[in-house]
């Protein structure tokens, strides 16, 4: 590789990093601006916008509403996703390809179409727009991500583990709970965090399946439609920090678990 192309590539790489981080950094900075007017230059600084957010019971309520949705939908996705992964990595059966295609379908449907389809189906099932409908839509949408992650891990488990357990007299249920499940732990933790983030950050499904109580992204969206304000920066920054911390923690812990294996 010539020196020129190396220099070119490293410039592109770091320019890309700047492109990714500068908008978020500016958004964070703007949340400390002592003026209602969004834009540069920033003459004086304040923490008032953050204090305002912590005193705003609407925002706090919305935050916990989103969190509850994320936790509940993740629980469903992880159970169904793992179950599907076990089915799809087990012995071959007629129609396995079709089941795989159906499993992955919710991840491939473009966002708006997925939201519309869920909205129509919720009405068909008699689920009113609101928390239950959002939890259900997030759960179904996130299943494929769990299945893919767990399938990848499951395919690396030596067959002899389960066989040994069976030879020692364990029934399939005990074998799964005491041998397979512990082996899948890193994958399940990683997939859970991914689902939590997907659900917490989701806009389009929450928007179309929600009732008057918004989730955090829907709240930010509706506030943005009536104009930018440093208050939105403060809310967004808090959401950003929380998701980043959770993501980094999951990434590090799954890497540590993989190393220990």
């Amino acid at each position: 590789m010539t020196r020129n192309s190396r220099v070119f590539l490293s410039i592109v790489f770091w320019a890309f990093v700047v492109y990714l981080f500068v908008p978020l950094a500016l958004m964070i900075l703007m949340g400390f601006k002592d003026s209602k007017f969004i834009g540069f230059p920033i003459q004086s600084w304040t923490l008032d916008w953050y204090l305002g957010v912590f005193e705003d019971t609407d925002v706090i309520g919305t935050f916990f509403y989103s969190l509850a949705i994320a936790v509940a939908s993740t629980a469903i996705s992880v159970v169904m996703g793992t179950w599907l992964a076990v089915l799809l990595t087990g012995r071959r059966f007629l129609g396995r390809g079709a089941v795989y295609a159906l499993m992955i379908l919710p991840a491939l449907v473009p966002g708006i179409i997925s939201a519309i389809a869920f909205r129509i189906y919720a009405r068909q099932l008699g689920i009113e727009p609101g928390m239950g409908a959002i939890i259900w839509a997030h759960a179904v949408h996130n299943v494929p991500f769990v299945t893919l992650v767990v399938m990848a891990r499951l395919s690396t488990q030596p067959k002899s583990y389960a066989e040994a357990a069976r030879d020692l007299g364990a029934d399939p249920l005990v074998t799964f709970v005491r041998v397979t499940l512990p082996y899948l732990k890193p994958a399940i933790i990683g997939a859970s965090v991914f689902c939590l983030l997907l659900s917490f950050d989701d806009f389009v499904r929450s928007f179309f399946l929600g009732s008057y109580q918004p989730t955090l992204p829907v709240l930010i969206f509706s506030k943005l439609r009536s104009g930018m304000s440093p208050e939105i920066n403060a809310i967004s920054t808090i959401a950003l920090v929380l998701t980043a911390v959770l993501g980094i923690w999951a990434e590090r812990s799954s890497r540590r678990m993989n190393k220990e294996n």
Partner: peptide, 24 residues
């Protein structure tokens, strides 16, 4: 590179609004 992608669609869209605005 992953860190910005953990943030949601709306928050990142807002960041772009601040970047590209007339006073951006």
């Amino acid at each position: 590179l992953l860190i910005p992608f953990w943030t949601g669609e709306i928050v990142r869209t807002y960041a772009i609004m601040i970047l590209l605005g007339n006073n951006g």
